[in-house]
Write a protein that binds this DNA or RNA. Structure first.
Length: 258
DNA sequence: ATGCCGTGGAAACCACGA
């Protein structure tokens, strides 16, 4: 079973790239972030024609998350992160697929720091951590994946010294990520590749991709039950080099059946 | 140190992203 996450940065503008990658990569389950489309503008038919069922939570202009599954039922559990009814951003969607709870998330960027956006990021992180604590207690295995907007360690930044005061790398942000992990979650890519430099995002400008000036901010967090099922994982970094690419590359893991 | 690029939406500029 192959599960992927991809911050598409506009699902409609990105549709040809998304469809090309789905055809090439053939993931069974996909979490998408940054749809940047209202609910009724999601390209449902094109996704269906590519062989995927989908649930999504759109939003005009910004945010937006979806879960796709090829030949599998998607049983939606929630389309919002518990803990703040006044938070209207579409940043979380959760479903049961093939006996696994899949949470797809788009954690707030948080810049500039300090300021209200950074406060919102940390608050959102607290809500995610509270929700994750409930999920990890359950019997069903869970995957929490998506764009976390966090580089967990210095290894995950091309030039860490330039990012120390950025919301994606501030001590508070890294501490929140490690606090979440400490519940018992496993960072799947880092688990398989403890010493590799791995990036999932490259800026559009300054030839960041060509210079490999990247960040690792898209992650898979695995429930303890899933760690022994983790067969392989990777980043489809070549997709970042395609014409009209997102600034993120797709990231994926493969799980054995049992 | 920086939004230099890219997307979407509104209105030929602005908000936002990381």
């Amino acid at each position: 079973m192959k599960i992927a996450t991809y911050n598409v940065n506009g699902v409609n503008g990105r549709l040809p790239v998304l469809l090309r990658w789905l055809e090439e990569s053939q993931p069974d389950v996909v979490c998408l972030q940054e749809l940047k489309a209202p609910q009724e503008k999601f390209p449902e038919q094109a996704i269906k024609d590519a062989g995927y069922n989908a649930i999504w939570h759109g939003q005009k202009s910004w945010n937006g998350v979806a879960i796709l599954a090829r030949g599998l039922d998607i049983k939606e559990r929630t389309r919002e992160l518990p803990g703040d009814p006044e938070d209207l951003h579409s940043r979380y969607i959760e479903a049961e697929v093939n006996g696994i709870i899949v949470g797809g998330l788009y954690l707030p960027n948080g810049n500039p720091t300090p300021g209200p956006k950074f406060e919102y990021k940390l608050k959102w992180f607290e809500r995610l951590t509270a929700h994750a604590a409930e999920l990890i207690k359950g019997d069903m295995p869970v995957i929490l994946t998506g764009d976390y907007n966090v580089m967990p360690t210095e290894m995950d930044v091309y030039k860490p010294e330039r990012w120390v005061n950025d919301a994606l790398f501030r001590p508070e942000t890294r501490a929140a990520f490690h606090n979440l992990l400490s519940q018992g979650w496993t960072d799947a890519l880092r688990h398989l590749y403890p010493d590799e430099v791995i990036y999932t995002f490259w800026d559009y400008f300054r030839n960041a991709y060509e210079r490999n000036a990247g960040l690792r901010i898209d992650h898979f967090l695995l429930h303890p039950k899933l760690v022994k099922r983790l067969k392989s994982a990777g980043v489809d970094r070549h997709v970042r080099g395609w014409e009209k690419s997102s600034d993120h590359a797709p990231v994926w893991i493969e799980l054995s059946k049992k």
